[in-house]
Amino acid sequence: MTIIDHHEANGPEAAVRLSEASARDFFELLKPRVMSLVVFTALAGMVLAPGHIHPFIGFIAILCIAVGAGASGALNMWYDADIDAVMTRTASRPIPAGKIRPEEALAFGLTLSAFSVCILGVVVNWLSAGLLAFTIFFYAVVYTMWLKRSTPQNIVIGGAAGAFPPMIGWACVTSGVAIESIVLFLITFLWTPSHFWALALFKMRDYGAVGVPMLPNVSGEATTKNQIVIYAVLTAIIGVVPTTLGFSSAVYGAFAAALGVGFIWYSVGVWRMPEGDEKMLPAKKLFAFSILYLFAIFSALMIDHLVATLWLTTGGAA
């Protein structure tokens, strides 16, 4: 049935299972789209941090963070292969599609986790390596193995795993944790529920079919919509905190406020969506906008910081 089972063998070795998995299949295990978000937010943490890191050491740090995040994705796919096979969104992933065996994915994930943490520790510093190790543990064990199948608050708490990369990037430069890096963490942390519950609304049946207790299935659409609006408001507020704390300019603050209003606007659109709406267009729009929002916020933070640095270096008003 599976590609892995298909083989030609002579004699008593017929039971040997030979893999047809390609390098691309293993790359897919790393959840490249999630990895791109991790790379981007980790880079933001690194750019915004005070101090200097050699560009090549910074490149290695980003690479380690990306591989560590990818490794936790592989461990997630290994553990969730049973439910991935049932859900339309995940049925074509390498394990349920039969391209990679679960034990191969487990070995791949564990190896990459160990390598990424150790190399980050040796090349950059051990605080950032410790944060990366904790992030991998949090995503693979706390979220995937524990929270995901046991509580509708799974992605609220589990969202911390996706929010750590800017803190790691910051720690790579400063060897420490600061209020600014915690604010960067909170931006992604508070953004995650609205983003994920928008997806959960229009994929409700998928999650229901595999018994994952997502909020729409457990508490209903109305509660989910209320929670989406609450977290969108919290996200909009935390988005402007960099300006109120003084590590971003008023221009960034105005831009973040406008984006925040947009985020609330789209979430209110979901809130006003009729119960039992089949197409769920407002939820799909919010999901798309939320991705744009996060990229725009972190881009704006980096551009604002680079402009301010350039201004100071060139003598500013002088």
Binding site: H6, H7, E8, A9, N10, G11, P12, E13, V16, L18, S19, E20, A21, S22, A23, R24, F26
Partner: peptide, 21 residues
């Protein structure tokens, strides 16, 4: 000694994995 004969697809994927590694 018994030998396993790899199919073309298996050879191709193994070559790809080796190059990537």
């Amino acid at each position: 000694m018994d030998m396993i004969t790899l199919s073309e697809a298996q050879k191709k994927s193994r070559r790809g994995r080796n190059i990537a590694l």
